[in-house]
Write a protein that binds this DNA or RNA. Structure first.
Lengths: 207, 207, 207, 207
DNA sequence: AATGAATGAGCATTCATTCAT
DNA sequence: GATGAATGAATGCTCATTCAT
């Protein structure tokens, strides 16, 4: 059985991600991708309609990867919602730090760039958030978490994680702060904020 | 009241901020700014040394505005750290939503463009974070908050707020979620996570 | 005989050389070349990496042509060093006048633009001078020339020829002077200056 | 007696020459001159019609300086034509090396730049050559030189000197050659070429 | 005599994309 | 499938010069 013809689409995506990680979004061009894969620039257009489409495919793939990595956590801690949530948070942040330029394309690119990102793909992206919501619901069911609306809480938790990853990637965190300490603090703060409060806890004024 | 002679520097800054928020940094060009203000591109160079300088002036300005708005909160709630912190969070998010253009320039642009931001200006920018750290320290002193390191906690709190603002500005929050509910949830989660607890929660293992 | 598909590289080189000689380096631009050849400026970059590369190719070519023309003289007068040297001088000047465009690019442009001329190519360029040095050495061997250092003498001879060509090309020679007379005078003066003298002339003090 | 108001024309010329020497012709701009003298760019136009005029004034001045320096030699050796000629050659080359960018503006700029150089000024420039011609004529009269046409010989001598200066300024002389040796060789060669030949000297074939 | 404000033209280079083959 | 040739538009920036004051 002969080698299947190389899946060039695959090769292009890998090269793109690679270049992205090395040189950032601004310095990426079709020509450079072409050069990297040893094909002519024109060839890329045989596999992706245009730069946008290539990027969307990349985002898709990133979402998928993120989902896989979160899902494995999900199953691993299926019966311990709090641990599961903590692990999900860890995993999310880890993903962002492991593949920062991936993360950037997925979540940090200017909206203007993403306007044309097809709605169908958006839906798939949202499955990631569902894993968080699920953990929260399970936590509430078991009485170990207290949230009013799991979807809202999932989003606010995501916000905390997203902010954490974002500041780290953009190197906006005070240089004197240890990254690991920062990450742990961020996760703890988010998690503690979801735990049920006992009557012994001090009252918190609402705004 | 007669029109003062147009302060072109001002006009340029406003136009730039506007374009930046609308189209992102990648799509910003001196020519576009020029076109928008109805002057030649060359004229911009009469008022700003180069693109970077223009850009940095914009960040500076934003940082200053943010500081003013946070500082007024700071003084208003000077003797109630928890309320003050909550108000600071509110105010931070509000600033981001009121002035998304400034916020984007200040905190959402690609790190690559931040690298050249002069250290001296950076220091001024950090004063904003200090107000959060101060509130945390005061809270700890009064025994109404529990954090190990106020600087780290200030950063993790900032991360939560930054994530919140960012997702809102980029319109990445699920359309079915009410923004106000989302914001409140985010702030509550961050705040609750900082309060002292009567007993360590066994359900939350240390990472 | 059918037209070969246009060799654009060739066309670009010719156009560039032409413009260069007409307007000087300062006034040469990729756009102008493009306009002259009826292609877009971008197209030039398909054939030359950048302005420098284009420029160096031109120099290379000129050096090669000059060498060919000098070398044919070299072989023709292989056993008569004085006649050979005279012919080399003639040929050198003739080359400058026949191909002023090449000559300008090769020898009259501002040093600033030569600095980047690759060392390897420099070496090839120097072969031209070697033909003069060779003639001098042969002349000394045969006792028909008297020079202390053939390399130095080759250079000073070159200087005389270069000055001659340069002044002619730049039209700096007094209009009342016949060019042919000027050229002959220049060559004679250079040659006579290299011949052995029967007695040291007391009127010429050493510097 | 109060200070005369600063002769700005003078100041501008000095600054220009200075910048020229430091950064070369290509990097010279009206703005930079203005900055250097601490006046606005506009001010320069009050004293020179345009860049061309400024340059022409500079050339004028250079020609004048050269003349002064050659003339002092002329008077110093008034009764020894050969020594005088040698000293004139030395002085000419020295001038070129002492003020290379001056020399460049005067003699090496692309003709296209000089097209508009007024004829009247050209005449003044030619006086420099006259000093050489005079020396030659005196030499012939005294029987210590042999030239057919002093104007032609002056030009061919100038060509040799010009070539020498030019190659040195452009750094085109082989790096292994000592400059002083090169200069001496060039002058000697030019001078020897002008001396009368005795019957004992070997015959030189005419081309 | 001096200037600040302004500009159109120009620069080398890069880019995403198209088209004929 | 794949490509070489080509391009129009765009980029940040500099320049000589003008004009109203």
């Amino acid at each position: 059985m002969p080698d299947r013809p190389t899946d060039l689409q695959r090769v292009i995506l890998d090269a793109t991600r690679n270049l992205l990680a090395r040189n950032g979004y601004t310095n990426l061009s079709m020509r450079k991708i072409a050069k990297k894969i040893g094909y002519s620039a024109t060839t890329i257009y045989l596999h992706f309609e245009n730069k946008d489409a290539l990027f969307h495919a990349l985002i898709d793939e990133g979402m998928h990867r993120l989902y896989e990595s979160l899902y494995s956590v999900h199953t691993q801690y299926s019966d311990a919602p709090v641990e599961r949530l903590r692990a999900l948070c860890r995993q999310y942040i880890q993903f962002g730090l492991d593949e920062p330029e991936y993360y950037e394309v997925m979540f940090m690119l200017h909206p203007e760039h993403m306007e044309r990102y097809p709605a169908a793909k958006y839906r798939r992206a949202r499955r990631n958030l569902d894993l968080f919501a699920q953990a929260l619901e399970d936590g509430v069911t078991e009485g170990v978490m207290a949230v009013q609306n799991s979807r809202v809480a999932a989003s606010s938790t995501w916000a905390a994680l997203h902010g954490t990853v974002t500041l780290l990637i953009a190197q906006r965190v005070d240089a004197r702060i240890d990254h690991e300490a920062f990450i742990t603090a961020a996760i703890d703060q988010a998690l503690y904020g979801l735990l049920p409060r006992t009557h012994a806890d001090p009252a918190v004024p609402k705004t």
